[in-house]
Amino acid sequence: MTVPLEIHLDADDQERALRADVVAGLTATPKSLPPKWFYDARGSELFEQITELPEYYPTRAERAILTAHATDIARLTGARTLIELGSGYSTKTRLLLDALRPELFVPMDVSPTALEAAAARIAVDHPSLRVRSIVGDFTRHLGFLPVADDRLVAFLGGTIGNLAPDERARFLAGVRGVLRPGEHLLLGTDLVKSPRVLVPAYDDAAGVTAEFNRNVLRVLNHHLQADFDVDGFTHVALWDADHEWIEMRLRARRPMRVTIPAVDLAVEFASGEEIRTEISAKFRREGVAKELSEAGFTLDHWWTDPEARFALTLARALP
Rank of each mutant, 00 (worst) to 15 (best):
F228C: 03
G296V: 05
V23F: 12
V219G: 12
E6P: 11
H223S: 13
V3Y: 08
N213G: 09
I160V: 13
L198N: 03
D137Y: 10
L115F: 04
V216P: 11
I7D: 14
L185W: 03
E278Y: 11
Y39L: 04
V147S: 15
D13R: 15
N215T: 02
F138P: 11
G88H: 01
M1N: 10
L142I: 08
H222A: 14
S194G: 14
K92L: 10
A118Y: 03
L95W: 08
D72Y: 11
D10N: 09
W303N: 00
Q225V: 08
F38Q: 07
L250V: 01
R63D: 12
Y89A: 14
E278P: 00
P306D: 01
D203L: 13
K290F: 15
L53H: 07
S90A: 13
K92N: 10
R316E: 09
L96Y: 07
P54D: 12
Y56A: 07
A114G: 02
T91M: 07
V230W: 08
Y89N: 13
P35L: 00
L186F: 06
L26T: 04
R251F: 02
L100Y: 08
I160M: 07
H184C: 08
V3P: 12
G232E: 00
F38T: 06
F228Y: 06
S128E: 15
D240N: 14
D166Y: 06
A206M: 13
M248P: 01
R214C: 07
A317V: 05
L292M: 02
D166S: 14
T209H: 03
G177P: 00
R130T: 13
E247F: 12
L76D: 11
V147K: 15
L314S: 03
A237P: 09
A315V: 05
A61M: 03
P127R: 00
E247L: 14
E211Y: 02
G174V: 02
R249C: 08
V288T: 09
D242T: 15
S111H: 00
Y39V: 01
D231A: 13
P261R: 04
G182T: 00
